[in-house]
């Protein structure tokens, strides 16, 4: 049997970490784009649009992420479409992220005083123009801190992709544990790497929050 040094384990984990990072970034960026579209629908005041987005958000916020992964991985396969673990993980994490980001951003949009809407309405601006030029520039400042804070959840959420067989940090840990039988060491290193990914993000979120409070 091959002997693994601590360095072997660590370097293998680092290679897999790359996929955790890639999955996180894709989920976050795509989730952000979908979330922005949903935000427009959610705050449009157009009843059917609001209704549909509410259901979407309720579904992705109100069910476990793991179940959503299963749905995408096994569910779509039922229609005869081959879904790789990678595709399933990307889709599930994207939609899951979008639901949370929409809700975070909606809170920011709604915190903008009603007078801003009324003034821009009186200037004959359409809903899109109001969002684009008046509301979002103000709301996005408030949104930065909680959005960065939420990115930590996305990074941690990618760990679940291991269950459907996508090889990222957690899955690599499991495989290395099976090969080395040193669970404490392996999972300590896994945890350490997650911490190194997440801590800067949560630290930054705290900093941004503080700066925003001072600015007021």
């Amino acid at each position: 049997m091959v002997q693994f040094t601590v360095w072997d384990i660590f370097s293998n984990l680092l290679i897999a970490t790359e996929w955790t990072i890639i999955l996180s970034i894709i989920a976050f960026v795509c989730g952000g784009i979908v979330g922005l579209v949903l935000l427009f629908a959610r705050t449009s005041g157009v009843r059917p649009l609001v209704f549909v987005t509410k259901i979407y958000i309720e579904f992705f916020q109100g069910t476990p992420l793991l179940m959503q992964l299963f749905l995408f991985f096994f569910g779509i396969a039922l229609f005869g479409i081959e879904v790789s673990p990678w595709m399933a993980a990307t889709m599930a994490l994207t939609f899951w992220t979008s639901a949370f980001l929409t809700e975070i951003w909606r809170g920011c949009v709604e915190s903008i005083p009603k007078g801003q809407w009324e003034a821009s309405t009186s200037l004959a601006m359409t809903y899109f123009e109001q969002m684009r030029y008046v509301i979002l520039p103000q709301a996005s400042r408030i949104a930065v801190a909680p959005t960065v804070g939420f990115s930590v959840q996305v990074v941690k959420g990618t760990a679940l992709a291991s269950i459907i067989g996508f090889v990222e940090l957690t899955k690599a840990g499991t495989m290395l544990n099976n090969a080395t039988f040193r669970p404490f060491l392996v999972y300590s290193l896994v945890a350490l790497i997650y911490f190194c990914l997440c801590f800067p993000l949560s630290f930054m979120a705290k900093k941004l929050e503080g700066r925003l409070n001072v600015a007021r």
Partner: peptide, 14 residues
């Protein structure tokens, strides 16, 4: 609304 302007008590500047 292009023909009817409005000014508010609370200014509502951007």
């Amino acid at each position: 609304r292009r023909h009817v302007g409005m000014v508010f008590q609370q200014f509502n500047l951007f």
